[in-house]
Design a protein around this nucleic acid. Structure first.
Ligand SMILES: [Mn+2]
Ligand SMILES: [Mn+2]
Ligand SMILES: [Zn+2]
Ligand SMILES: [Zn+2]
Lengths: 136, 136
DNA sequence: TCTTTATTAATAAAAATTATTATCTAAGGA
DNA sequence: TCCTTAGATAATAATTTTTATTAATAAAGA
């Protein structure tokens, strides 16, 4: 993972064990809910407040380090900032897998945006279905 | 809008004023939150319970008439079922506009799914940015 | 080390969602 | 048209999720 300590500092956010733990938890999981971040960190830091996770996720969203991944019918998951990509979301087990987005797709999205005088900033591309481990 | 009365019936859901009002409200708005559906219907049906909106949205989601549109940083909106398409979502005013999805894009999504043994059922393609009315 | 200021934990408050239940109504049959 | 009945609604309570408050704490720089 990138140097998040410097990134936090550049936005005036102090480096705390809590923040680094949250980033580490997200990085390891790939995509994870607020609750699961909290549970994860609780194991070796039992006093972590859930509110602290909420607060910091919000702050780190605002500075662009963390991105919300809203998922139909489920609680949002969070990931570290990365280039636009595709999500394969399993409706059985809830897994979320990243896939590179094709250049052609990006061009088409750009074209649609231009046609509609829409200033495109980011995309979220969720493919819902059943993952290979859940077909039996 | 299609004949939702028959659709409800075919799934064993009784046709009620409340359900038809919800469907109509969604149809007219295009994309709308639970709260706004409730407020909308309240004007000429002041006794409508918010819980009734929640319950029915859930039931109509389950039978596939209504689809949740989760939006990063905001409350989900709901729309009537339609073919997969693209959303232009304005981060200033919150507007959501439908755009047809290009066949090429669909093919690429299919290809990615096949490559990953993923059974693709539906997609949600959110393009976040600033709409033409919000650039000044 | 000291000082300052942001951050945290703990808690309370608020907002959102779901559950419960008595009453009511849509739908089908007599 | 008038029952009958299963399912739906309204009202409310309960639960869950998220945000606000604040005293104590810890990071960062002097
Ligand atoms: Mn991702
Ligand atoms: Mn739509
Ligand atoms: Zn799965
Ligand atoms: Zn706008």
């Amino acid at each position: 993972m990138t140097n998040y300590q410097n990134l936090l500092k550049s936005y005036g956010l102090k480096t705390t064990f809590q923040r680094l733990s949250i980033l580490k938890s997200i990085d390891i999981a790939g995509h994870i809910t607020i609750d699961d971040i909290h549970k994860d960190i609780l194991t070796n830091h039992p006093s972590l407040s859930l509110a602290t996770v909420y607060n910091n996720i919000l702050k780190m969203q605002n500075i662009g380090v963390v991105v919300e991944v809203p998922i139909s019918g489920k609680k949002s998951k969070y990931e570290l900032i990365k280039d636009d990509h595709i999500h394969l979301i399993c409706q059985k087990c809830g897994s979320v897998v990243d896939k590179d987005i094709n250049c052609d797709v990006e061009q088409i999205f750009d074209k649609i945006s231009v046609e509609n005088n829409f200033v495109l900033l980011s995309t979220q591309n969720n493919l819902y279905g059943v993952c290979k481990d859940c077909i039996y």
